[in-house]
C-alpha cells in the first residue's frame, strides 16, 4: 500500500514538473475554460430569461446553475486527472509499447491510471466556483454544511464512476484498434450531464441513471447542496459507484488477459 502511494506520488511529481515548463498553459486554460463556461451557461440564460414559469420543470435558474457547477467541476477532474493517463494507454496499445508497462513489477491498472496528469486543469475549478457562487446567490441562500459534505461524497463517487467508464473504454481498445476517438465519444456523452435530470424522460432517464449514470454525477450533488437529496439515494449512489469500479476492474483484468500486443 505504501509502495503504491509513493509510486503515485512519483508519477504525480513528474506530471507537475512537466506542467511547470508550460506555465502559460494555465492562463490559456483559464481563458478558454471561461469561454466554455459561457457556452455552458448561455443556453440556460436564454431558456430562463428572467421568467420563473419557463425552464426545466421543478428547477429554478439558480438551482440549474448548481448542476452546471458540478458539471464543470467533474469536467476539470476528467481533463486533469482521468483522461490524460487513459488516453496514453490507447497510444500504448496502438504502438505496442504497453508491454513495457506490463513488465514493470506493479499493478498495471495503477501504473497506467496515474501515468499522466494535467495539473493546470484546476483552472476549471475556478470557473466552477464562480458558477456555484452565482447559483447560490440566485437561490438566495447558501448550502448547509451537511449538504456540502454529501455533495463532496457524491462528487468523489462520480469521479470513481467516470474513471470506471474510462477504464471500460480502454478495455475495448484491446480488441478494436484505431478507436482513439472513443475518448471524444465519452466526452460528448458526458456533455449531456450539464442539465438537471428532468430533461431526460422515458428511456433516456433510465439509461442516464443506471447505465451511464450522468444523473448521479451532477443532478444528485446539486440536490445534496440544496439539501433535498434523500439519504437512501446517497447511499445507493455510493454503493453503485463502488460496484461500477469493481466491475470495471474485472473487465480490465479479463481484457488484459487476452491482450496479445501489437506484434511489431
Amino acid at each position: 500500500m505504501r509502495r503504491a502511494a509513493s509510486l503515485v506520488l512519483v508519477q504525480l511529481r513528474a506530471s507537475v514538473m512537466l506542467a511547470a515548463q508550460y506555465r502559460l498553459d494555465f492562463v490559456l486554460d483559464l481563458l478558454i475554460g471561461a469561454f466554455w463556461t459561457v457556452a455552458a451557461v448561455l443556453p440556460l440564460v436564454v431558456v430562463y430569461r428572467g421568467s420563473s414559469k419557463a425552464g426545466v420543470p421543478g428547477w429554478t435558474f439558480g438551482e440549474t446553475l448548481l448542476v452546471v457547477g458540478c458539471f464543470i467541476t467533474l469536467q476539470a477532474v476528467i481533463d486533469g486527472a482521468i483522461s490524460p493517463s487513459l488516453t496514453s494507454v490507447l497510444d500504448h496499445v496502438r504502438k505496442g509499447t504497453l508491454d513495457f508497462v506490463l513488465l514493470k513489477p506493479h499493478d498495471a491498472q495503477l501504473l497506467v491510471s496515474t501515468a499522466r496528469f494535467h495539473p493546470w486543469r484546476v483552472a476549471g475549478l475556478v470557473h466552477a466556483g464562480v458558477v456555484f457562487a452565482v447559483g447560490f446567490s440566485e437561490v438566495g441562500r447558501g448550502p448547509a454544511l451537511s449538504g456540502v459534505a454529501q455533495a463532496l461524497v457524491l462528487l468523489t463517487a462520480s469521479t470513481l464512476l467516470l474513471y470506471s467508464l474510462w477504464l471500460l473504454i480502454v478495455s475495448v481498445s484491446f480488441f478494436a484498434v484505431k478507436v482513439d476517438n472513443l475518448g471524444s465519444l465519452f466526452t460528448s456523452i458526458f456533455d449531456a450531464a450539464r442539465w438537471p435530470a428532468p430533461v431526460f424522460r422515458g428511456a433516456f432517464r433510465v439509461v442516464f441513471t443506471f447505465v451511464i449514470p450522468l444523473v448521479v454525477m451532477t443532478t444528485f450533488p446539486a440536490e445534496a447542496l440544496l439539501g433535498r437529496l434523500p439519504g437512501t439515494t446517497l447511499a445507493a449512489s455510493v454503493l453503485g459507484a463502488l460496484g461500477f469500479g469493481f466491475a470495471a476492474r474485472v473487465v480490465w483484468k479479463a481484457s488484459l488477459a487476452r491482450y496479445t500486443s501489437a506484434g511489431g
Binding site: 426545466v56 476517438n181 471524444s184 465519444l185 460528448s188 456523452i189 456533455d191 449531456a192 430533461v199
Partner: peptide, 20 residues
C-alpha cells in the same frame, strides 16, 4: 461511426428544449 456518434450534442439539446 464513433466520430458521428460523438456529435450527438444537437440531440441532447433537443431533449432539453423539448422538455421545456
Amino acid at each position: 461511426v464513433v466520430w458521428v456518434l460523438s456529435t450527438t450534442m444537437p440531440l441532447v439539446m433537443m431533449l432539453l428544449w423539448t422538455s421545456i
